[in-house]
């Protein structure tokens, strides 16, 4: 399909252009973009699993936390270099996601959402209390840190990778299976799709990347406590960004994350206290007027436009 392939290469080109930016750009914009790429990565991970299957996960922050702590603890205890701990953090997150996903993915709808949320909260409290392992509320200081530009490139790379994986999933059998599960899981199972395995694979993959992003961010922050990295607001931002941009689309999380982060940056500077009210208002308006998100609504409108038949 020529159109789709073109899209992929355009995306690749854009990513490469962004990669070259630091050599020309101003420090402020590089900083801003670093944060944006981080959130694109996270939102894309959430969208990969939840956008396509329709399962609403409210516990994703568990994996940013796990990633951050696995990397941090390994570095502190064993002195391994940061770049080695990142994939280990992802692995740790993936393994736990496997254990969690196996029973939890049996639940549906509101119950899946509440269950994942409950687990993430429980995990945060455990991190708080298990001071022997995590230093608890005292917080953990990360001994290593990369250069600013390194974070820029790593986040860009990871975000692009997850978006590419999403693109691949969307256009191949895996994606059809996920969408089938979304439409009618029972029917999908009857047609021979191994729903449990597919859900689990997607869930674990998503968690793997979330873990790595969390680990990187932990080192970028330099110091954190459990409620910084296990914060439910991280999950909520991921969800809203995916929704705003358009769940179940490749570009949705990209647009959503960019849009929301820019607004947050602008409003946070200008309106301080008031800005959350405005974010809330934006969310309410998007749900009411653009229920398929920015990208989703646009796709819908284009589809209708090119369908004029007698």
């Amino acid at each position: 399909m020529p159109v789709k392939r073109t899209g992929f290469f355009i995306g690749l080109l854009v990513a490469v252009l962004f990669a070259l930016l630091p050599f020309a750009g101003e420090s402020y914009y590089i900083q801003l973009l670093t944060v944006i790429f981080y959130w694109i990565g996270l939102a894309a991970c959430w969208n990969l699993m939840c956008g396509y299957t329709g399962y609403i996960d409210f516990g994703s922050a568990a994996y940013t936390g796990i990633g951050a702590y696995v990397a941090g603890i390994i570095m502190v205890r064993s002195g391994l270099p940061l770049l080695t701990t990142i994939p280990l953090a992802g692995l740790g997150a993936g393994v736990i996601a496997l254990a969690v996903g196996w029973p939890t993915l049996r639940l549906r709808g509101a119950y899946f959402a509440i269950a994942t949320f409950a687990l993430a909260e429980a995990l945060m409290q455990v991190a708080e209390e298990w001071t022997g392992l995590t230093e608890g509320g005292i917080g953990i200081t990360i001994p290593q840190r990369l250069e600013e530009f390194d974070y820029y490139w790593l986040y860009l790379f990871l975000a692009a990778l997850v978006v590419a994986i999403t693109w691949w999933v969307e256009h191949h059998k895996h994606g059809y299976a996920l969408k089938a599960i979304h439409e009618d899981e029972h029917a999908a199972a009857q047609v021979g799709i191994n729903t449990h395995t597919i859900k689990l694979k997607t869930y674990v993959t998503s968690a793997f990347f979330i873990g790595m992003l969390g680990a990187l961010e932990g080192s970028r922050l330099g110091y954190f406590k459990p409620d910084d990295v296990f914060d439910v607001h991280i999950t909520i931002k991921m969800v809203i960004m995916s929704l705003l941009g358009g769940m179940g689309t490749v570009l949705g999380p990209v647009i959503g994350a960019t849009f929301l982060q820019l607004i947050e940056d602008y409003l946070g500077a200008q309106f301080l206290n008031f800005y959350l009210v405005i974010i809330g208002a934006i969310i309410v308006c998007v749900i009411i007027f653009l229920p398929r998100g920015i990208v989703g609504s646009t796709i819908e409108r284009l589809r209708l436009k090119f369908r004029r038949q007698p």
Binding site: A113, V239, I240, F274, L276, A281, I283, V284
Partner: peptide, 19 residues
Amino acid sequence: APPIMSYILTFGMHLMISN
């Protein structure tokens, strides 16, 4: 609509009201 819409909508309202 799908349940997620109501979660996000009411979450948006939560942000507005509490802030």
